[in-house]
Amino acid sequence: MNRRLSWFNVTTLSLGFAFLYLPMLILIIYSFNASKLVTVWAGFSTQWYVSLMGNQQFLDAAWVTLRVAFFSSTLATVLGTMAAYVLVRAGRFPGRTLFSGMIYAPLVMPDVITGLSLLLLFIAINLDRGIFTIVLAHTTFSMCYVSVVVSSRLMTFDRSLEEAALDLGCTPFDAFRSVTLPIITPAVISGWLLAFTLSLDDLVIASFTAGPSSTTLPIRIFSSVRLGVSPEINALSTIMISIVAVGVVSASLVSKRAIIRQRQEELAGVRA
Protein backbone atom coordinates (compact mmCIF):
# COMPACT_ATOMS: atom_id res chain seq x y z
CA MET A 1 0.00 0.00 0.00
CA ASN A 2 1.09 3.49 -0.67
CA ARG A 3 1.16 5.49 2.50
CA ARG A 4 2.36 9.02 2.69
CA LEU A 5 3.58 10.76 5.80
CA SER A 6 1.60 13.85 6.67
CA TRP A 7 3.27 16.69 8.56
CA PHE A 8 1.28 15.59 11.59
CA ASN A 9 2.82 12.13 11.53
CA VAL A 10 6.30 13.50 10.94
CA THR A 11 5.89 15.76 13.96
CA THR A 12 4.62 13.06 16.28
CA LEU A 13 7.30 10.62 15.19
CA SER A 14 10.06 13.20 15.64
CA LEU A 15 8.78 14.26 19.05
CA GLY A 16 8.22 10.67 20.14
CA PHE A 17 11.66 9.50 19.17
CA ALA A 18 13.27 12.65 20.55
CA PHE A 19 11.61 11.86 23.86
CA LEU A 20 12.92 8.29 23.71
CA TYR A 21 16.47 9.15 22.71
CA LEU A 22 17.29 12.64 24.01
CA PRO A 23 17.87 11.57 27.62
CA MET A 24 20.26 8.85 26.51
CA LEU A 25 21.98 11.24 24.14
CA ILE A 26 22.55 13.76 26.92
CA LEU A 27 23.90 10.97 29.09
CA ILE A 28 26.36 9.95 26.42
CA ILE A 29 27.50 13.50 25.64
CA TYR A 30 28.10 14.33 29.26
CA SER A 31 30.10 11.18 29.85
CA PHE A 32 32.79 13.01 27.86
CA ASN A 33 32.56 16.09 30.04
CA ALA A 34 35.78 17.22 31.68
CA SER A 35 33.94 18.67 34.67
CA LYS A 36 32.83 16.67 37.63
CA LEU A 37 29.73 18.82 37.70
CA VAL A 38 27.58 16.84 35.39
CA THR A 39 25.43 19.67 34.12
CA VAL A 40 28.15 22.11 33.22
CA TRP A 41 30.09 21.50 30.04
CA ALA A 42 33.81 22.03 30.58
CA GLY A 43 35.36 20.55 27.49
CA PHE A 44 35.88 17.11 26.02
CA SER A 45 37.61 14.49 28.09
CA THR A 46 37.75 10.73 28.41
CA GLN A 47 38.99 10.83 31.97
CA TRP A 48 35.83 9.21 33.38
CA TYR A 49 36.35 6.17 31.21
CA VAL A 50 39.90 5.94 32.46
CA SER A 51 38.82 6.24 36.07
CA LEU A 52 36.04 3.73 35.48
CA MET A 53 38.57 1.23 34.21
CA GLY A 54 40.52 1.71 37.41
CA ASN A 55 37.48 1.24 39.62
CA GLN A 56 37.90 -2.27 40.94
CA GLN A 57 34.46 -2.33 42.55
CA PHE A 58 32.74 -1.75 39.21
CA LEU A 59 34.94 -4.22 37.40
CA ASP A 60 34.25 -6.91 40.00
CA ALA A 61 30.54 -6.22 39.83
CA ALA A 62 30.58 -6.36 36.04
CA TRP A 63 32.34 -9.71 36.13
CA VAL A 64 29.80 -11.10 38.63
CA THR A 65 26.95 -9.82 36.45
CA LEU A 66 28.33 -11.36 33.29
CA ARG A 67 28.80 -14.74 34.93
CA VAL A 68 25.33 -14.67 36.46
CA ALA A 69 23.80 -13.62 33.15
CA PHE A 70 25.63 -16.29 31.20
CA PHE A 71 24.77 -19.18 33.49
CA SER A 72 21.22 -18.13 34.22
CA SER A 73 20.34 -17.42 30.60
CA THR A 74 21.80 -20.72 29.44
CA LEU A 75 19.96 -22.68 32.11
CA ALA A 76 16.81 -20.66 31.47
CA THR A 77 17.02 -21.42 27.76
CA VAL A 78 17.20 -25.16 28.37
CA LEU A 79 14.39 -25.15 30.92
CA GLY A 80 12.29 -22.62 29.04
CA THR A 81 12.53 -24.58 25.79
CA MET A 82 11.50 -27.74 27.62
CA ALA A 83 8.60 -25.89 29.23
CA ALA A 84 7.53 -24.47 25.86
CA TYR A 85 7.59 -27.92 24.34
CA VAL A 86 5.53 -29.28 27.23
CA LEU A 87 3.01 -26.45 26.88
CA VAL A 88 2.56 -26.80 23.13
CA ARG A 89 3.17 -30.47 22.46
CA ALA A 90 2.80 -32.67 25.52
CA GLY A 91 -0.99 -32.72 25.43
CA ARG A 92 -2.87 -33.32 28.64
CA PHE A 93 -1.21 -34.35 31.87
CA PRO A 94 -2.19 -33.96 35.50
CA GLY A 95 -1.52 -30.44 36.73
CA ARG A 96 -1.26 -28.85 33.31
CA THR A 97 -3.24 -25.78 34.34
CA LEU A 98 -0.97 -25.19 37.32
CA PHE A 99 2.04 -25.60 35.05
CA SER A 100 0.92 -23.03 32.50
CA GLY A 101 -0.10 -20.74 35.34
CA MET A 102 3.40 -20.97 36.79
CA ILE A 103 4.86 -20.15 33.37
CA TYR A 104 2.79 -17.01 32.89
CA ALA A 105 2.60 -15.73 36.47
CA PRO A 106 6.27 -14.71 36.82
CA LEU A 107 5.89 -12.48 33.75
CA VAL A 108 3.49 -10.20 35.60
CA MET A 109 4.79 -10.74 39.12
CA PRO A 110 6.33 -7.59 40.58
CA ASP A 111 10.07 -8.00 41.07
CA VAL A 112 9.82 -7.12 44.74
CA ILE A 113 7.57 -10.11 45.38
CA THR A 114 9.68 -12.53 43.34
CA GLY A 115 12.82 -11.32 45.08
CA LEU A 116 11.33 -11.45 48.54
CA SER A 117 9.85 -14.91 48.10
CA LEU A 118 13.07 -16.39 46.74
CA LEU A 119 15.10 -14.84 49.51
CA LEU A 120 12.76 -16.32 52.10
CA LEU A 121 13.10 -19.71 50.41
CA PHE A 122 16.89 -19.57 50.43
CA ILE A 123 16.84 -18.67 54.10
CA ALA A 124 14.33 -21.42 54.89
CA ILE A 125 16.52 -24.07 53.28
CA ASN A 126 19.67 -22.47 54.66
CA LEU A 127 21.30 -21.80 51.31
CA ASP A 128 24.17 -19.33 51.48
CA ARG A 129 23.50 -16.38 49.26
CA GLY A 130 25.91 -15.66 46.47
CA ILE A 131 26.26 -15.98 42.74
CA PHE A 132 24.56 -19.37 42.85
CA THR A 133 21.37 -18.05 44.40
CA ILE A 134 21.18 -15.15 41.93
CA VAL A 135 21.55 -17.63 39.10
CA LEU A 136 18.71 -19.73 40.53
CA ALA A 137 16.50 -16.65 40.88
CA HIS A 138 17.26 -15.26 37.43
CA THR A 139 16.82 -18.66 35.80
CA THR A 140 13.39 -19.00 37.35
CA PHE A 141 11.91 -15.80 36.01
CA SER A 142 13.75 -15.67 32.69
CA MET A 143 12.88 -19.28 31.79
CA CYS A 144 9.29 -18.09 31.65
CA TYR A 145 10.21 -15.40 29.10
CA VAL A 146 12.17 -17.96 27.08
CA SER A 147 9.24 -20.35 27.11
CA VAL A 148 6.86 -17.64 25.91
CA VAL A 149 9.19 -16.78 23.00
CA VAL A 150 9.83 -20.41 22.07
CA SER A 151 6.24 -21.57 22.48
CA SER A 152 4.95 -18.84 20.18
CA ARG A 153 7.34 -20.17 17.54
CA LEU A 154 6.29 -23.76 18.22
CA MET A 155 2.64 -22.81 17.81
CA THR A 156 3.18 -21.61 14.26
CA PHE A 157 5.35 -24.65 13.54
CA ASP A 158 3.82 -27.09 11.05
CA ARG A 159 3.07 -30.16 13.12
CA SER A 160 3.28 -32.38 10.08
CA LEU A 161 7.06 -31.79 9.92
CA GLU A 162 7.43 -33.76 13.13
CA GLU A 163 4.99 -36.38 11.90
CA ALA A 164 6.96 -36.67 8.67
CA ALA A 165 10.12 -37.31 10.68
CA LEU A 166 8.35 -40.02 12.70
CA ASP A 167 6.94 -41.47 9.51
CA LEU A 168 10.43 -41.67 8.05
CA GLY A 169 11.72 -43.68 10.99
CA CYS A 170 12.69 -41.17 13.69
CA THR A 171 12.01 -41.82 17.33
CA PRO A 172 10.22 -38.89 18.97
CA PHE A 173 13.48 -37.69 20.53
CA ASP A 174 15.31 -38.08 17.23
CA ALA A 175 12.56 -36.08 15.50
CA PHE A 176 12.96 -33.26 18.02
CA ARG A 177 16.74 -33.22 17.65
CA SER A 178 16.96 -33.42 13.86
CA VAL A 179 13.84 -31.49 12.78
CA THR A 180 12.21 -29.40 15.49
CA LEU A 181 15.31 -28.01 17.15
CA PRO A 182 17.07 -26.78 13.98
CA ILE A 183 13.90 -25.00 12.90
CA ILE A 184 13.16 -23.29 16.21
CA THR A 185 16.82 -22.38 16.79
CA PRO A 186 16.34 -18.66 15.95
CA ALA A 187 13.60 -18.46 18.58
CA VAL A 188 15.77 -20.28 21.09
CA ILE A 189 18.62 -17.85 20.42
CA SER A 190 16.41 -14.82 20.84
CA GLY A 191 15.09 -16.40 24.03
CA TRP A 192 18.64 -16.72 25.28
CA LEU A 193 19.42 -13.10 24.40
CA LEU A 194 16.27 -11.96 26.18
CA ALA A 195 17.17 -13.98 29.27
CA PHE A 196 20.71 -12.62 29.17
CA THR A 197 19.53 -9.01 28.97
CA LEU A 198 16.93 -9.50 31.69
CA SER A 199 19.62 -10.88 33.96
CA LEU A 200 22.06 -8.06 33.15
CA ASP A 201 19.33 -5.57 33.84
CA ASP A 202 17.84 -6.88 37.03
CA LEU A 203 18.29 -4.85 40.18
CA VAL A 204 15.47 -5.82 42.49
CA ILE A 205 15.61 -9.61 42.45
CA ALA A 206 19.41 -9.58 42.59
CA SER A 207 19.30 -7.23 45.58
CA PHE A 208 17.19 -9.72 47.48
CA THR A 209 19.09 -12.83 46.51
CA ALA A 210 22.69 -11.58 46.38
CA GLY A 211 25.14 -12.19 49.17
CA PRO A 212 27.70 -9.68 50.42
CA SER A 213 30.39 -10.99 48.07
CA SER A 214 28.23 -11.14 44.97
CA THR A 215 27.30 -7.54 44.23
CA THR A 216 26.07 -7.25 40.66
CA LEU A 217 26.55 -4.22 38.45
CA PRO A 218 22.97 -2.93 38.77
CA ILE A 219 23.25 -3.14 42.57
CA ARG A 220 26.52 -1.22 42.44
CA ILE A 221 25.08 1.38 40.06
CA PHE A 222 21.94 1.76 42.14
CA SER A 223 23.83 2.40 45.35
CA SER A 224 26.05 5.01 43.75
CA VAL A 225 23.20 6.64 41.81
CA ARG A 226 21.26 7.14 45.02
CA LEU A 227 24.01 9.55 46.02
CA GLY A 228 23.43 11.56 42.85
CA VAL A 229 24.63 11.82 39.29
CA SER A 230 28.22 10.90 38.71
CA PRO A 231 30.22 11.19 35.50
CA GLU A 232 31.62 7.70 36.02
CA ILE A 233 28.15 6.25 35.87
CA ASN A 234 27.56 8.26 32.70
CA ALA A 235 30.64 6.66 31.20
CA LEU A 236 29.49 3.20 32.27
CA SER A 237 26.01 3.83 30.87
CA THR A 238 27.51 4.96 27.59
CA ILE A 239 29.48 1.74 27.31
CA MET A 240 26.41 -0.37 28.07
CA ILE A 241 24.19 1.58 25.68
CA SER A 242 26.71 1.28 22.87
CA ILE A 243 27.11 -2.47 23.36
CA VAL A 244 23.35 -2.92 23.16
CA ALA A 245 23.02 -0.54 20.21
CA VAL A 246 25.74 -2.31 18.24
CA GLY A 247 24.18 -5.66 19.10
CA VAL A 248 20.61 -4.74 18.17
CA VAL A 249 21.55 -2.86 15.01
CA SER A 250 23.81 -5.61 13.72
CA ALA A 251 21.24 -8.28 14.60
CA SER A 252 18.60 -6.42 12.63
CA LEU A 253 21.00 -5.92 9.70
CA VAL A 254 21.86 -9.60 9.69
CA SER A 255 18.23 -10.65 9.76
CA LYS A 256 17.37 -8.09 7.08
CA ARG A 257 20.11 -9.44 4.84
CA ALA A 258 18.94 -12.99 5.51
CA ILE A 259 15.44 -12.02 4.43
CA ILE A 260 16.74 -10.36 1.27
CA ARG A 261 18.90 -13.36 0.41
CA GLN A 262 16.01 -15.72 0.98
CA ARG A 263 13.82 -13.64 -1.33
CA GLN A 264 16.49 -13.69 -4.01
CA GLU A 265 16.87 -17.44 -3.67
CA GLU A 266 13.13 -17.88 -3.93
CA LEU A 267 13.06 -15.77 -7.09
CA ALA A 268 15.90 -17.82 -8.53
CA GLY A 269 14.03 -20.99 -7.62
CA VAL A 270 10.92 -19.86 -9.43
CA ARG A 271 12.85 -18.95 -12.55
CA ALA A 272 14.71 -22.27 -12.71
Binding site: F17, L20, Y21, P23, M24, I26, L27, Y30, V38, T39, T197, L200, D201, L203, P218, I221, F222, V225, G228, V229, I233, N234, S237, M240, I241, V244, A245, G247, V248, V249, S252
Partner: peptide
Protein backbone atom coordinates in the same frame (compact mmCIF):
# COMPACT_ATOMS: atom_id res chain seq x y z
CA UNK B 1 10.40 -0.76 14.98
CA UNK B 2 14.03 -1.21 15.88
CA UNK B 3 14.20 2.30 17.32
CA UNK B 4 11.26 1.50 19.59
CA UNK B 5 12.70 -1.84 20.69
CA UNK B 6 16.25 -0.61 21.24
CA UNK B 7 15.50 1.17 24.55
CA UNK B 8 13.84 -2.01 25.77
CA UNK B 9 17.17 -3.82 25.49
CA UNK B 10 19.12 -1.09 27.27
CA UNK B 11 19.30 -1.12 31.02
CA UNK B 12 16.14 0.02 32.75
CA UNK B 13 18.21 1.44 35.58
CA UNK B 14 20.28 3.57 33.23
CA UNK B 15 17.22 4.89 31.46
CA UNK B 16 15.76 6.01 34.79
CA UNK B 17 19.11 7.38 35.85
CA UNK B 18 19.32 9.50 32.72
CA UNK B 19 16.38 11.55 33.98
CA UNK B 20 18.04 12.50 37.24
CA UNK B 21 20.42 14.80 35.40
CA UNK B 22 17.55 16.27 33.40
Amino acid sequence: MMLVILPFWTSFLIRVYAWIGI
